[in-house]
Amino acid sequence: MNAIEVKGITKKFGDFVAVDSISFEVGTGEIFGFLGANGAGKSTAMRMLCGLLEPTSGEAKVAGFDIYKQREQIKKSIGYMSQKFSLYGDLTVAENIKFWGGLYGLTKAEIRAKEEEIVEKLEMRGWENSFVASLPMGWKQKLAFSISIMHSPKIVFLDEPTGGVDPIVRRKFWEEIYDASLRSITVFVTTHYMDEAEYCDRASIMVDGQIRALGTPAELKKKFGRADMDGVFKDLARGAQRKDA
């Protein structure tokens, strides 16, 4: 079964077509890159898949649930992380873990076990009672990611998770993503760093609300005759009508 199935979903805001009949599938455990310039419609599409926005038309299933009728089940099956927000800075590492664990309905014992696991894995022993605000950016992001998959969701949505950090930290962050994917968590990630696009199993590129290209990085590079994903992206983005928002 596919983790995500999208058939012609469209979102209009008045006359403006933010997402124009896009279709794609994402397999279980796949790392799916959702690329596009600012204003291309990426976040609108993602918000629809997370149950935050209702599509104007089209069909979609997330984790096997219908995005119109089964939003509550979808919310239980997904995790979500964005660069804009990484945890509560005025709560400690342990308090953040407890809060988000509780929000997703984990039991106290489960939360304690997860806390151990996360602290161990991120080598944060001794930092449990530090405020998240005092942690370095790279750690914060890894912690936010670990917390977003704490309830073992089927799919995790990452909205530009690595904004504002250098390539080395990004590379390390991607190790966490691979790790999650190995545990058959499907990863749906938006990004505008093209080096990251290379790490995805498959990637789609959105321009003006439509998906203009979809395939493995190797396929896309071959099709557009480019050496890297950056070239592919520039070829497609050059034709964009919408300017950066």
């Binding site: 997370c50 935050l52 239980k76 997904i78 964005s82 804009k84 927000f85 929000l103 997703y104």
Partner: peptide
């Protein structure tokens, strides 16, 4: 403002 609301709304709460 911090963008938390979005994440809270995505949660089952």
């Amino acid at each position: 403002e911090m963008g938390n609301m979005e994440i809270l709304l995505v949660s089952p709460m």
